[in-house]
Design a protein around this nucleic acid. Sequence first.
DNA 1: TCCGCCAGAATGAACGTTCAGTCAGTTTTA
DNA 2: TAAAACTGACTGAACGTTCATTCTGGCGGA
Lengths: 196, 196
Amino acid sequence: MSVTQQNKSDLILYAALEQFAENGFHSSPVSQLASLAGVGVGSIYRYFKDKDELIHAVFTMVDDALQKAITASMNPELSGRSEFIQLVTSLIQYLDKHPQEFKFLEQYYSSPYGADKKRAKFLCEGRGGSSNPFVDLFFGNKAKSLKDLPLPLYLAMTFGPIIFLLRDSLSGLVTLDEALIQQTAEASWNAIKAEN
Amino acid sequence: MSVTQQNKSDLILYAALEQFAENGFHSSPVSQLASLAGVGVGSIYRYFKDKDELIHAVFTMVDDALQKAITASMNPELSGRSEFIQLVTSLIQYLDKHPQEFKFLEQYYSSPYGADKKRAKFLCEGRGGSSNPFVDLFFGNKAKSLKDLPLPLYLAMTFGPIIFLLRDSLSGLVTLDEALIQQTAEASWNAIKAEN
DNA sequence: TCCGCCAGAATGAACGTTCAGTCAGTTTTA
DNA sequence: TAAAACTGACTGAACGTTCATTCTGGCGGA
């Protein structure tokens, strides 16, 4: 079986993800990406206009996979508290199991590259239909069980702790076992749920 | 009044803070730092061994100022919930009013430069006596009003949302008025407080 | 043989760092 | 007191290195 074009472009993307996650955009020379991918420097420029375009392509790949994983883990039967905890749990588990993806996304969003995407996500300018399972939950009809807070605060209380914890897990300061993940999801829920 | 040595080193530090916050470490050539500080390139190397040492020096300056501001805002009379909300509030207010400091710290901690400091903060290897007002609160005798959670989770639920919100504030996606800050502090408290 | 694809050497821009020279201020000499 | 000698902080051109990108020669399939 020979290496097809699709294969080669993917080889480059995976090698780039690995290098970017491990060394950052600035410390990942194109020459190094090439040798990790087992490809000549010039070939990278056959598939991607320049390094920037490669970075954006890696983002698209990573973001699609994450989107798919979260959507797949959803259970339409659940509602309110259970749904929230389910979403948080699977997000943490996915990103903890895919540290390269997490490191890449963090770097991407906090760099000039990701500024626009961030705004888009935030304002829910998502694909045509439903935007984001989390935002659906915050705005949907199940929202009765939530305190009435501005959207940015829902997002902050949900994603802030997740990101913080994942970073510590990456640094080896914490082990994200099932119990800790459960406690995290519940604490987040307590932060935003309506008083009983 | 002439420019003293102390002055000049400070000029460099402030210029560096500005450039680093605005453009990042990698996109802040020493030549640019020099011209912003109104100083020859070589002079920077009189006061700092190399660019790395300058970066660490800026961190020390910023961290000291933040430490001082938080400590100054503390009220030993308060306890439990009020103390926590006071701490969170003043941390948010300080960093929102000092966006360059915030951007710098974010960058520093998530770069190889800050890896050690992060671990030190985490393990509370602080100065001799008390380490950190937040950690004191989580461990202190007032802790009865808190759920029994692992320290990393306290930290995640406290600082995660703050960082997330400050980022959005920097991007202009959110305005951090007093009401939102108050809601944030209360939500964080609800996440970690003991059930009533 | 021809054509398209490829690897890696070549290129030039940009960077961190160095260092020889300059000059304002201070001390020494006459 | 005035001139000469000295001092060291300061500058910015120059250096070597590293990078993104381009170019070129050659290899494999048709």
